[in-house]
Design a binder for these strands. Structure first.
Lengths: 144, 144
DNA sequence: AATAGACAGTTACAGTCGCGACCAATTGTG
DNA sequence: CACAATTGGTCGCGACTGTAACTGTCTATT
């Protein structure tokens, strides 16, 4: 009978590591801005692309459309983004960050980049093969 | 201004990969047994250790005690495990799998091992450094 | 022996999530 | 041009989660 040790089982380990990393990343922006992960993803996507529809944000950040919808609603209430009706397709809303939203974005990005840098530095020479493996995994699972 | 591309950002990638792997792992046992992740973790832990308290299961499988409590309740209803009061400490309950529970466990384990094997094989020579990096990350984040 | 604090496990509650139904706008088909 | 099918976005619902409060038991201090 094959043995299985949960603590060495890949899906389990990946989940633990992913949530530990996310949890720790919270400490990067948490103290200054109170953000959920979905909100952060919307902010990051809009910071990156200037303007985008909710649909496109969902595609780019791998979020269900209801999750995007709610994150957008909350960010709008906080005046970090605004919406305007698309002219070509009036079902669509074009979303952009407000000046305040961009300010927060510019505040967080360098911290996020440094956070990632710190982790990769701790992996040392192991970082490159690790990132390669992640890429390979992304390929594998996007094909399914 | 440092740039940030969400799709290449480590916490984001780890979360995506972890949930894709878990999702895909569901397809291993899903068709035969309907199990949630917490239930699977309890089953796997008890399969591994024969008998254990809920507290110990939580520690070993990194789950909050309320999550363990509910998973145990559900598995008990399904007659996959049973509880008995500890004799040394009557606050504690000693949990063990029933024969039915062990049957399910023995059915799933080889599939789980094969599932993991398949992923690592797809990583080829990159598998070893990848696993090393995971171990390193576990160290880093358990220290925090 | 009595009582205060710690501890195992459960429960109530509030927040979050995804599915499915929905609305309004758009596109395709006859 | 009508009307059926599709699409972007929202909302209600049930399922699941962690926090905090609670119950019952144990342990340490007196």
């Amino acid at each position: 009978m094959a043995k299985l040790q949960l603590e060495h089982f890949l899906p389990y380990r990946l989940n633990r590591i992913a949530s530990a990393v996310s949890q720790d990343f919270r400490s990067v922006y948490g103290p200054h801005h109170d953000l959920t992960i979905p909100e952060w993803r919307v902010l990051a996507t809009l910071g990156q692309f200037e303007e985008m529809s909710a649909k496109a944000i969902g595609r780019h950040s791998a979020m269900h459309k209801t999750k995007v919808s709610r994150a957008v609603r909350d960010l709008e209430e906080r005046r970090w983004l605004k919406r305007r009706e698309s002219e070509e397709d009036r079902r669509e809303e074009i979303l952009t960050l407000t000046e305040l939203g961009r300010k927060v974005y510019r505040d967080i990005v360098p911290k996020a980049v440094a956070f990632e840098r710190r982790i990769l530095d701790e992996l040392g020479p192991g970082a490159k093969p690790f990132l390669d493996a992640l890429e390979r995994l992304e390929e594998i699972f996007s094909a399914r």
